[in-house]
Design a protein around this nucleic acid. Sequence first.
DNA 1: TCAAAATTTAGACACTTGTAAAACCACAAA
DNA 2: TTTGTGGTTTTACAAGTGTCTAAATTTTGA
Lengths: 196, 196
Amino acid sequence: MKYDPQKKLNRNTQRTLKAFSEAMFGLLGEKNFEKITVNELCARCDYPRATFYNYFDDKYDLVSYCWYQLGKDAHLDAAQTLPTNESLLAVFDEVYRLFTEHHDLLNRVVEHNPIDGLLINDFIHHFNQVMTQLFANGLSNHQTKTPIELMAQYYSNTVLLVLKWVFLAQHNVTLDTARSYLTELLTKPFLSDANN
Amino acid sequence: MKYDPQKKLNRNTQRTLKAFSEAMFGLLGEKNFEKITVNELCARCDYPRATFYNYFDDKYDLVSYCWYQLGKDAHLDAAQTLPTNESLLAVFDEVYRLFTEHHDLLNRVVEHNPIDGLLINDFIHHFNQVMTQLFANGLSNHQTKTPIELMAQYYSNTVLLVLKWVFLAQHNVTLDTARSYLTELLTKPFLSDANN
DNA sequence: TCAAAATTTAGACACTTGTAAAACCACAAA
DNA sequence: TTTGTGGTTTTACAAGTGTCTAAATTTTGA
């Protein structure tokens, strides 16, 4: 991104960013991301090519701005109070809520894009970044042999693994079931040798 | 891949595949993957463009063939005997060994490619696929509330998280330390509320 | 209200991509 | 030796990418 979305932007800039991200969201629901061209995006929102490159480096840049937009109204303050079961699950719940809110967008995206393709990877990766950061802060005064950064990545990874399973791999289980999966994964005390 | 590397290939085909993958390995150590063009690959191994497209769909296709080549001499049979601590760690050890074997290639790659960029994601993803498959087989007669496929993904994810930390994020800790991280992550019985 | 400053747009450019048709080659069977 | 077949290579092409310059337009501040 050439513009920092955190910063105050003038009305014109906001309008342009919105137009492009809406064009992208629209097209994502219609066809494979790889097949989407910059020309197409520009045609859809009726801006010249040069304007696109004025705001974004390329379509990857735009799509990551889209994920930012999509994620920015999640309230993940619970992560600040890590480490507790409750706060971890609270974060999980909130992202579950967010993904539910955009359920039909996600469904349409999954229809046209492979689950392990670049686009969905990128989507997951975006939230992974955000959550890892949050968890790392929350864990900052926690002490373990394992580095905090690694722990944060682990928790974020695992939370998103379950959410990907539910919303992108479309197993569409209830929040309670999803929670029970997450809890089992995180608490399962390693594979027992006496098992089976 | 237009050719199945499992199948027997005639000498010519093998030579061509090898030439292209070596060209790719070479260039990966020299510059960012995004900047590598098909023309460049062809120039390096002195094959015409059309030949490239004869064998691969695009450079992503080639690079995934490269990862396949790199990974194919890992002996991961231990995964068949899941679920036990030992077999999981045995798999971990073996991939650790494999990555150590290619330590300088990985270092060079990391020098030119962002840790969270497309290339390294793809690299991790390749091994994730392979390991998830193995674990899913190993777990097939194991019963839990959580779906087996999800469990397999969880173990594979976590193993690779640590390996990525060590080899790609270049914290370069010893096998023993790496093992202890993995064990702590997998056994840590959730975040305790009484903590800190 | 006007001129300077900044931003947006048009058009062109060099380059890459992936595909397709036709020429070319090697090697086997007749 | 001839002929056919399969694969490789040449060449050409349509389309997309990202960059650049200059012109047009908008914004800003005096």
